[in-house]
Design a protein around this nucleic acid. Structure first.
Length: 128
DNA sequence: AGCGTGACGAGTA
DNA sequence: ATACTCGCCACGC
């Protein structure tokens, strides 16, 4: 096959296809079981490529078609701008939440990562 | 090329 | 628990 040599800054792109990295991130996102979550960093580590910021970027740009609420920040804070949307999902999926202490009323609950975090493998998780 | 910005994360005060 | 720093890396100006 004749190898066409493109200049490094003029590689052909196909509009229908997402960048390969983005596709992998979305792929992993769809593997997260309902009621569980993975952090941006977890996904990056799982892929063995990129970092949390790269994953965050992908979700920001292309996350609309996948269960984006199952990809969360490491501190358990709900996604800014879509807290209520996400909270709704968590409640219907039974995702472990950590209710805000009564002292902080205005605060929405945060995720209980200790219980909700999914390691990417199939494994029994119990307790209550 | 430099610099600010971001759906991040860990460490420190 | 909050605030701030740094490290990280892709992008846009």
């Amino acid at each position: 096959m004749s190898e066409q040599s493109f200049p490094d800054d003029a590689r052909p792109e196909y509009a229908d296809a997402l960048p390969e990295y983005a596709e992998r991130v979305l792929d992993v996102t769809e593997l997260i079981p309902p009621g569980r979550v993975m952090t941006y960093g977890d996904i990056a580590e799982y892929l063995g490529e990129g970092g949390p910021r790269q994953v965050g970027r992908v979700m920001s740009l292309y996350g609309g078609g996948v269960p984006w609420w199952r990809v969360v920040r490491a501190d358990g804070a709900l996604l800014a701008g879509q807290e209520l949307e996400a909270l709704d999902r968590y409640r219907e999926e039974g995702t472990p939440l950590k209710e805000a202490s009564r002292a902080a009323e205005g605060h929405l609950p945060r995720l209980d990562l200790k219980r909700a975090r999914w390691d990417g493998g199939e494994r029994a998780q119990d307790h209550t």
